[in-house]
Design a protein around this nucleic acid. Structure first.
Length: 219
DNA sequence: GCTTCGATCTTCT
DNA sequence: GAAGATCGAAGCG
C-alpha cells in the first residue's frame, strides 16, 4: 500500500523530509473524536551533530524514540507543562526528526478548541508546538507511536511542496550554536497565516539572586 | 500593540 | 542543582 512508500519518504535527512511533511495532514482519533491538522511549519533536528537536539549527547531513555525507525512520534514534556511532538525521519540510529511547530486544524475544530481551553481565533488552535500537540490530544503515552497506524494517521501530500512555496529560517527557542541562521532548519509554507511568529532564543533570566546583599536574612 | 515575567517538573550534570 | 525545542497573562506605552 501507500503506507510503505510514505514511510520511505520520511526515511531521508530531516532537511529533505521537511518538504514532504509540509502540507501533510496528521489525524488523531480519540474515542471516535477525530482532530486533523494540516502541517504548516516544522523544524529539523539533526541528531548528534546538532547542538540544539535532545539527541546531541547521545541516546537516553527520554529520546530513545528519535533513534528508532522513521515514521514514529517522539513526544516529550517541556518546561514541566507542555508536550511537543516530532516525527522521526532519516535512518534508524541517526536520531533525526522534525518538530511539528504549527498547523491548521482542518477537522474536529470543536474538540480541538475544547482541549485548548481558550483559543482566541481558529488560527490559534495549533499555532506553536505545544498548542499543536494539545489540539491533537498528543501526550506522553503516544511517544513511539507509529504515525501510519491507529490511532494516528499521517497523510503526506501527493508531491513534495515546491521550493518556491517553502521559506526557511533560523530555529525558534534554540539557544547557542544551532539557534542562529548558521542552521536554517526551520521550514514553513510561505505566507501561511498559521505560522508561528519568530521569537529569538533568549536564555531565561535566572531567578533574582537568592541572597541579596542587603537582606538581613542573609547572614 | 509589544515586552517581560511567572508557572511547573522532567531530565541530565 | 540548573536548564529547558513554551505559553499565556500582566504590565507598560
Amino acid at each position: 500500500m501507500a503506507y510503505a512508500s510514505e514511510r520511505e519518504r520520511l526515511a531521508v535527512p530531516a532537511t529533505e523530509a521537511a518538504r514532504h511533511l509540509l502540507g501533510a495532514v496528521l489525524t488523531h482519533d480519540v474515542d471516535g473524536e477525530r482532530v486533523s491538522v494540516r502541517i504548516t511549519e516544522v523544524e529539523a533536528y539533526m541528531g548528534d551533530v546538532d547542538p540544539g537536539s535532545h539527541a546531541f549527547r547521545g541516546q537516553t531513555a527520554r529520546n530513545a524514540t528519535m533513534f528508532g525507525p522513521a515514521g514514529h512520534l517522539y513526544v516529550y514534556l517541556t518546561y514541566g507543562m507542555h508536550y511537543c511532538a516530532n516525527v522521526v525521519c532519516g535512518t534508524e540510529g541517526f536520531a533525526t526528526g522534525l518538530l511539528l511547530r504549527a498547523g491548521e486544524v482542518v477537522e474536529g475544530a470543536e474538540a480541538a478548541a475544547l482541549r485548548r481551553g481558550n483559543p482566541r481565533t481558529h488560527l490559534d488552535l495549533a499555532r506553536g508546538p505545544a498548542r499543536l500537540a494539545q489540539a491533537l490530544g498528543i501526550a506522553r503515552p503516544l511517544d513511539g507511536a507509529d504515525v501510519f497506524a491507529d490511532p494516528l494517521r499521517l497523510t503526506l501530500p501527493d508531491e513534495p511542496v515546491p521550493d518556491e512555496l517553502v521559506s526557511t529560517g533560523p530555529r525558534v527557542g534554540v539557544s547557542g550554536p544551532g539557534g542562529t541562521d548558521e542552521y536554517p532548519w526551520r521550514y514553513w509554507l510561505t505566507g501561511d497565516p498559521t505560522v508561528s511568529k519568530y521569537r529569538p532564543a533568549v536564555p531565561r533570566r535566572r531567578p533574582a539572586a537568592a541572597a541579596p546583599a542587603g537582606n538581613p536574612q542573609n547572614a
